[in-house]
Structures are given as C-alpha cells and as structure tokens.
Amino acid sequence: MSNMKMSKLEIFNRKNVIMLFLLLLVYGIVQLLFQNQILNKFYMMTFILVCIYIILAVSQNLITGFTGQLAIGHAGFMAIGAYMSALVTVKLDGSLIAGLIFGSIVAAFAGILIGIPTLRLKGDYLAIATLGLGEIVRIIFLNTDYLGGATGFQVPKVINWTWAFWLMVISVVVIKNFINSSHGRACIAVRENEIAAEAMGINTTKYKVMAFAIGALFAGLAGAIYANYMYVILPGTFSFLKSFEILVMVVLGGLGSITGCIIGAGLMTLVSAFLANYPEMRMVIIAVLLILLMIYRPNGLLGNKEFKFDFLNPKKKGEENGTA
C-alpha cells in the first residue's frame, strides 16, 4: 500500500514520463518542420493559435465545466491580459516574461474584483452579467487612446512556437493539478450541488471566486501570448463573439473534460484555419456542424470523460478506477 502511494506521488512516474516524451515529440516535429521550411508561416500561425485557444478553452472549462458557473466574459479577461502585457513590453520597455506575468496577474485581479459581486448570481443571470462586463472591458480599451483606441495597438512579434507550446503545456498541467487537488474537488462539489456542498462545510463563494480568478489568470496569459504574436491588437477582437467561440470549443469537446476541450479547441481552430479562404462559408459550415453535433451528441465529443493513455499499462486499470 505504501509502495503504491509512493509511486503516485513521484513526479517521474511512468505515465508522466510517457506524456513528457510525447510532448517533446510533438514540439520537436513541428519545430523541425518549420525550421526546414516544410510548413509555411500560415501553418505556424495556426499552430500557435491552437495553443492560445487550448489555454482559453481549458481555463473556461475550469469555470464552466468544473465549477459549473456559466460565465461568458472570457474575451474580457483575454483583452486585459493582452493590453496589460503590451503596456509592459511596448510602453515600459519591459521583457516578454514581465509582460506575460503582469498581464496574467492583472487579469486574475480583475477576475477576483468581478467575481466577488457577480458570482452571487445564478445561471443565465451570471451569464449575461459576465457578458456585459466583458463588453465593458472592451469599450474601456476602445476609448483609451493611450493604448491605441479603435485604431489598434502595435506590438512587436516576439512569441514563437517554443513559447506558445510550453506555456500551453504549463497552463494545462497547472489547471489539471488544481482540479485534482482538494480545492479542485471542492469546485466540483459546488458544480454538483451548491447547497449540499455548503452543508458539507465548503465555502462556496471562496471556491467560485478561486476558480474564476484562476480561469481569468490563464485567459490573461492567453491574451498576453496573443498580443505579443499578432503585431497589432484591436478592441474589436475581444467582443462577446470571442467569448462565445471559447464557450463553443468547451461544450463541443465536453464540459468537465480537459482532454475533451483540448480536442474541441484544436478542432475548431484547425477547421476555421483550413476554410480561411471562404470566410462566410466557413461560419455557415461551423454553424451547421455545431447544431448537428449538439442534436446528436449534446454532451460534446467526450462528455465529461477524459481521454487516457490507460492502454499503455493495462495492469493499473483497476487501481485507476478505484481512485478516480
């Protein structure tokens, strides 16, 4: 028994080593293809956008899928991260890391500030309040001439595949570990039944705000990566339609499934990239796919199940089921 526990606590257990190896493989292959000019800039942008959207989808999933709070203001936090990181890197001549950290932290603070009053609201009322806050954030940046206003804010491109990929990996690992911690379990309890969770001694407001702040932190990070990659950021990019897009990725992949929303984000980004030459047709196709998918698989592609590498070591299966 103690042996088993030890093996679970080790960082370099078999599962993690395999995972790390796979990640290195994906990273290396894309890096090699790009260096040898097999993939052009368009593909590079698509891959980096996939990384950005994975961070956004996973953090939205923490709020909506795991804590059960339907908040549609992710684009607002993304905007805060984008503009604040650009403020550091462009206006204050700070380093990229300082920009990324500052953008994420300001977004997290905004999440706490917004979360404390609004998370008392339930269901659709929370949805519209957060949507409204996201729009307010956009309008504030639209009217701030110091940060470019409506004409956009020029930011030099410093993010490359290495930055985007490993920041994405770090974000996913942190959120996954949060969900598997006791705090994350408390969040899931809030999702399942708020009153029951409160009766069991869980401070529901605290955990809702915590999930909201962490979600906002990573949305801010994604925004910061976006800002330092895209050359120019426009307030119009961060409208509520962007929040819808992120929510769609999460529901498409499966609420409450990290691997599900990674697949959802990847799929949506790739489909829209490959149909980029037919912008209107692309949206019509996406809309039809969305409606059909929701009618035939209302719980998303993976539901709330996780895609696991269990087939790699079948012996452990019983044990996994016992602890999952």
Binding site: I286, A287, L290, I291, N299
Partner: peptide, 24 residues
C-alpha cells in the same frame, strides 16, 4: 430535439443558429 438535453447544449445550438443566419 434538445428539449430534454442540458440547457448549455441548447444555448450552444442557439449560438450556432445565430451564426448560421448571420453568415448565411
């Protein structure tokens, strides 16, 4: 078809319908 499904699924369908009408 989604009357018995989760409300979020219906919401996403409504968003899909809205995109369909706009870009259609």
């Amino acid at each position: 078809p989604l009357r018995k499904a989760s409300r979020l699924a219906a919401l996403i369908t409504a968003i899909g319908m809205s995109f369909f009408l706009e870009y259609g």
